[in-house]
Structures are given as C-alpha cells and as structure tokens.
Computed example of a mutant assay.
Amino acid sequence: MDTEAHDTERDRSSPPRTGDEEGSRSARFPEAPWRGAALLGAACAAFLLLFSTFVMQPFLIPSGSMQPTLEIGDRVLVNKLAYRFGSVPQRGDVVVFDGTGSFVREEPAGNPVTGLLRWAAAAVGLAEPAETDYIKRVVGVGGDRVVCCDKRGRVEVNGRPVDEEYLYPGDAPSRVPFDIVVPQGTLWVMGDHRSHSRDSRDHLGEPGGGMVPVEKVVGRADWIGWPVGRWSSLDESGDQGSGGSAPAKHSTRVTAPGPVGSHG
C-alpha cells in the first residue's frame, strides 16, 4: 500500500496552519509604522484647535496701529475665558472682538474651503485672523462719558484725565475731537498708535456710533507669546479714569486680512 502518496495528497489538501496564515498575511501587508504617528498628530491637532477655540488663542499682529505696545509680527495670547464667568471688560483691557456690525457692516463672503483652512491656521497663530477680528484698548465702558480733549490735550473719562503713557511717542491722544456717552453693554475702543489706528473714532457717524457690543468680545489679550525676545504679560500701566483706577493694558488691532483701512 502506497501510504506515502496518500499522506502527500492529504497534506496538500489540508488547510494551512493558523501561524502560517498570519505570517503570510503580515508579509503581504506589513504594519505601517507611520499610522501611529499620524493618529497622534491628528489627535494633537484636534486638541490644539479645541483649546484655541474655547480657551486660549494666539493672534498674529499684522499692523503697527498699536506700537509701541505691540509690534508687527507679534503673537498675542488671547484669554477666551476672561469674560465667560460673569466678568466684563474693564477700562484698559486689551480685547479682541468681532467687528461685524460695528467696524464692519457685514461679514465678507468668501470661498468656504479657503475660509476653513484660514481659520485653522489662524487658530494656532500661523495666519492672520479673520477680516472681522480686531484688537484694541478699552477706553470707555457702558455709562462712561469719554471726551477729547481737555485744555492739555488729554482724553477725559467721566471728567478725569487719562494718563496714557502707552501712546506712541509723539502721538496726540486724538486729533479728532469727540464727546460721547458709551451706551450700556458696549465699549469705546482705541488703538495706542493713534495717528495710525482706525478705531471707534472713525465710526462715529455710522450706525452704532463706533461702539463695540460686549457680546462681540472674543477675549482679553494677556500675553505676548512670540517672538521669544518679547515674551511678556500685558501689565497694568496707568489710570483709565472714572471713579477709580483701572488697568491700562497694551493694545492694537488685529486685522488679518483686515478691514477698516486694512491694518489701521
């Protein structure tokens, strides 16, 4: 009896062993070491976008409208939780706000895909902010009377002169006279480089009178995060008038691609 032949046929027809099958499969489909790195990178990017959207966002400064406080190319870190728990903007705060309806009549239309990519890049400080995003110094809050100027050329808030040490050297507090009362729930904001800043003064004759609704404030700029040589907090520096002192923090306007005089 030819048992060897039968055994050979039986071996050929028997299913492959599990170990052999896994080895063959891994040989055909080798594990990709980059998959783990890609997943980790995607998770980190998602975390950064969420953190930037709800907690802290870097904003690129594209103009000199707030020199010497903020220089072109600075990246400020904006605290989005500053006004989330009952706090409101104070005189001297440097705030980022959506200028739609106050500095810009309506949001410009654009390619949605390009807009999404720009938003993602701006969220991590790699691109200029949206066209409607600005950053300025709060000079008056709801109920304040803000006047320019007194006999010595100073801005007054509720009858008290404001010592604006942060102004650009040689700049006057304002070459445009004004006398306004800030409605409740709004802010009067100005840049530090007054001769190169288009701010509430430039919208006096428009609907809203140049006032920025508090609800449009994105957050408070608390730190300069870049470049390394300019790492610093935006410290208190002066009295903003009216019944007590308030912090006078550094400010400028973030326009990225920016309206109202582009980067003014």
Results as ranks from 00 to 15, higher is better:
D2K: 12
T3E: 14
A5E: 14
E9K: 09
D11Y: 11
P15D: 07
E21G: 01
R28K: 10
E31L: 08
A37S: 03
L40R: 13
L40Y: 01
G41K: 04
F47P: 05
L49D: 10
L50F: 00
L50S: 03
F54R: 04
Q57D: 06
Q57G: 03
F59W: 12
T69Q: 14
G73I: 13
G73W: 11
G73E: 07
N79D: 15
A82S: 12
F85E: 14
V88C: 01
R91A: 11
G92D: 10
F97W: 08
F103A: 10
T114H: 08
G115H: 05
L116R: 13
L117P: 14
L117M: 14
R118S: 13
W119Y: 15
A120P: 07
A123F: 12
L126H: 13
E128F: 00
T132A: 04
D133C: 01
R137F: 06
R137Q: 10
V138D: 03
V141K: 05
V141P: 05
V141W: 09
G142P: 03
G143T: 02
V147N: 07
V147F: 15
D150N: 09
D150K: 11
V157R: 10
P161I: 12
V162L: 00
Y168C: 00
P169N: 01
P173N: 10
T186I: 07
L187K: 11
W188F: 15
D199R: 03
S200C: 15
S200A: 14
D202A: 15
H203K: 09
G208E: 06
G209T: 00
V212S: 02
E215P: 00
V217H: 01
G219S: 04
G219E: 01
R220S: 09
R220Y: 05
A221P: 06
D222T: 13
W223F: 14
I224P: 07
W231I: 07
W231R: 02
W231H: 12
S232A: 15
G238Q: 09
G243K: 08
S245D: 14
P247R: 15
K249S: 13
T252Q: 04
G258V: 03
V260K: 07
